[in-house]
């Protein structure tokens, strides 16, 4: 890449680049302050706690790109978390079936959201507010009390390093094969997120449907006049959102070996996902940004909370500091306002 094209890319992806830089600084500082920083154990622990919010933030990105908002992502994650806590045990075939059932639940729920938004022509924010309540209700039906039964091997293998994965399932000579050595210390949860992002998000973004989603967010009328498949794109966007949210719910069940239909937790995940999306450089007006940015945004949110473990901060001050950091981070949007020459540009 030449300097000129790099410069152009940077100016077009200001928010994303800033988020990436912020994450790099925060993460490196965190690891150098941590007594066991830059070790596999720390990375595994961090990755484990980031996966659920990362998936939920990616799920939130799609409706936001359309210019809407999905207030049900946290609830769908909770619902799928409860489904997974019921079905992830038994023979390997049963477990595979359970994984499929969990992902199908979230995908169908997202599809339903999409249909309500497209055919019911209800604003996404308010439609998902309602369907979110339905999802929580279903989650409570499935799991009135927290708990669950998740296969121990699966739980162990997917929440540790690649070596543990190979060791648990006994492939690649139990993790000692020469070709797996370079990857042995990488946390599996990190790989899961990267793989899903690469296999799902990247092809989606390059497809006609994906481009249509961006076009709808920029100017829905223009997209319609250009003959783009608007309705299909909206439905696919919500369906994919449901799928990604169910990935989050599935992982949470594997990580905690349980399901918990907690309304407060669902709400917190939804709100944090919006924060992560904005931090990652996606505009709430729609049309610009992407799920990779939201991934970075979610990581930033998590790294900030990791700091409280190593710094000697009064635990009572933690929520305040978290809030101030969040408020400061989103306030960087003010630079756009200060640069505006024509007042009317503010009202877009």
């Amino acid at each position: 890449m030449t300097t000129a094209s790099l410069g152009r890319w940077l100016s077009r992806n200001m928010g994303f680049s800033a988020a990436l830089l912020l994450l790099a600084i925060l993460f490196l500082t965190y690891n150098s302050l941590h007594p066991r920083g830059f070790s596999s154990a720390v990375a595994i622990q961090n990755a484990n706690e980031t996966v659920a919010i990362a998936f939920v933030a990616m799920a939130q990105t799609l409706p936001v790109l359309l210019g809407g908002l999905d207030l049900s992502v946290g609830a769908v994650m909770t619902l799928t978390n409860c489904v997974a806590s019921e079905v992830l045990h038994g023979s390997p075939l049963q477990i595979v079936f359970g994984v499929g059932l969990t992902l199908l639940t979230g995908t169908l729920f997202g599809f339903m959201n999409g249909c309500i938004v497209v055919y019911g022509r209800i604003q996404p924010i308010i439609a998902t507010l309602a369907t979110g309540a339905v999802a929580i209700g279903l989650a409570l039906l499935i799991r009135p009390k927290p708990g669950g039964n998740v296969d121990d091997d699966l739980s162990w293998a997917l929440t540790n390093s690649v070596w543990d994965l190979a060791d648990t399932y006994g492939f690649a000579e139990g993790g000692e094969a020469w070709w797996i050595r370079p990857f042995a210390d990488i946390p599996v949860p990190f790989l899961i997120v990267v793989i899903v992002a690469t296999l799902v998000w990247v092809p989606f973004r390059r497809s006609v449907i994906g481009r249509t989603v961006y076009a709808i967010g920029s100017a829905e009328g223009a997209a319609y006049m250009s003959g783009l498949p608007i309705q299909r794109a909206k439905i696919v966007a919500f369906t994919l959102g449901g799928f990604l949210a169910s990935c989050g719910g599935l992982y949470l069940a594997i990580q905690t070996s349980s399901g918990n239909a907690d309304i407060q937790q669902a709400g917190a995940y939804t709100l944090n996902s919006i924060a992560a999306v904005v931090l990652g450089g996606t505009s709430l007006l729609g049309g610009t940004g992407g799920a990779i940015g939201s991934l970075v945004g979610a990581m930033i949110l998590r790294v900030i909370s990791f700091y409280f473990r190593i710094l000697d901060i009064d635990p009572l001050l933690q929520p305040l500091i978290e809030g101030l950091v969040l408020l400061t981070a989103v306030s960087f949007g003010v630079f756009r306002t200060l640069r505006v020459r024509n007042q009317l540009d503010l009202f877009r």
């Binding site: 009064d314 305040l320 969040l326 408020l327 989103v330 306030s331």
Partner: peptide, 26 residues
């Protein structure tokens, strides 16, 4: 004045207020 989307700004203010209350009562 800062033109930050209300969705995210009021969310941040909510979190800060929660922090203030936890700090105050702690």
């Amino acid at each position: 004045y800062l033109r930050i989307p209300s969705m995210i700004f009021t969310l941040g203010v909510d979190t800060v207020l929660r922090g203030l209350m936890v700090a105050q009562t702690g």
